[in-house]
């Protein structure tokens, strides 16, 4: 929609533009630059065209990391979205308890990511950590430092603990926007709890759930700090997700060209998924109009 022109408005947008340029556009262009060249240090660059991309796309190591990444994202979405919705549904809709629940829910989101990693690192240790010790005491052989299954279990659990709250808060906001009359009408219509969820709450939460899934997808794709602190990508490469792999390539092996190509591929994939979600969301709006 065209608004009446007021050129002063551009000044208000300017800081954001500058910030976005510094944060995103300039680094992105640098990365594109790196990805098309080969370097051995000393600021010596050789043009290599798409060689880096071809190498990355054919590398079994990249395939493995990508597969692990998708597996991880898929698992956490599968757990966090239904769990978040379930918790939001169980929360009191108004009153003091509602506020108490909201504050409790927000707590994990307020903790710095590296602290989350460190916390779970200790919590899951088989000798002194409550979780690790507890599981072993129950007769389950659990040691995330040398068992891939244990490591996966720990990082998934940590992510669920850390991020389910986000889904809860969004779903709760969606639920709060439903007029009381809908619940009354459903009661009068003799609707079961499930029917209320299926025909009132879920359709009304659709928009926020898409946003929740989108945010969790992007965030889980970027996940680095917590698994780095917790497992460092191990044991072996068992929990080496995309960004850990990327950092290993860039800083561990100083393969800047390869790492840059990886990050561009990785960026394009995220962009594609975002576009997919955006289309879904705008279509949903047209349906509702």
């Amino acid at each position: 929609m065209t608004k009446t022109q007021n050129n002063r408005a551009w000044f208000l947008v300017l800081p954001v533009l500058v910030l976005v340029a510094m944060n995103a556009i300039i680094p992105l262009m640098t990365v594109v630059n790196y990805s098309l060249q080969e370097t051995f240090g000393d600021n010596l660059f050789f043009w290599s065209g798409t060689d880096n991309y071809v190498a990355v796309l054919h590398s079994p190591r990249f395939h493995a990391a990508l597969l692990r990444q998708f597996a991880f994202t898929f698992i956490i979405l599968l757990i966090e979205v239904p769990l978040g919705v379930a918790i939001a549904l169980a929360m009191p809709r108004a009153g003091v308890w509602s506020s108490v629940c909201l504050v409790l829910m927000a707590l994990p989101l307020l903790i710095p990511w590296n602290v989350v990693g460190a916390m779970w690192n200790i919590f899951a240790l088989p000798d002194i950590g409550l979780l690790g010790w507890g599981l072993n005491a129950l007769g389950i052989n659990f040691n995330y430092t040398n068992q891939p299954v244990s490591a996966w279990f720990t990082i998934v659990l940590m992510d669920v603990w850390h991020w389910t709250s986000l889904v809860v808060l969004l779903a709760f906001a969606g639920l709060r926007s439903i007029d009381e009359a809908y619940y009354r009408a459903a009661k009068i219509d003799g609707a079961s709890r499930w029917a209320v969820f299926r025909y009132i709450q879920l359709p009304k939460m659709r928009q926020v759930l898409i946003i929740a899934i989108l945010l969790r997808f992007i965030d889980s794709f970027m996940i680095y700090t917590e698994p780095f602190v917790l497992t460092g990508g191990g044991p072996g490469n068992a929990t080496t997700l995309l960004s850990i792999d990327l950092v290993k390539a860039a800083l561990g092996e100083f393969n800047l060209g390869i790492a840059a190509a990886m990050s561009i591929i990785y960026f394009l994939m995220t962009l594609f998924v975002c576009w997919l979600f955006y289309t879904l969301m705008t279509q949903g709006k047209e349906d509702a109009a």
């Binding site: 929609m1 065209t2 608004k3 009446t4 022109q5 007021n6």
Partner: peptide
């Protein structure tokens, strides 16, 4: 003046105010 017409003009006291902001 909250919206701008797609075509046509708005006049106030003989002055064309079509693009003028609401303020």
């Amino acid at each position: 003046g909250l919206d701008r017409p797609t075509s046509g003009t708005v006049w106030a006291d003989g002055v064309d105010v079509t693009g003028l902001a609401v303020q």
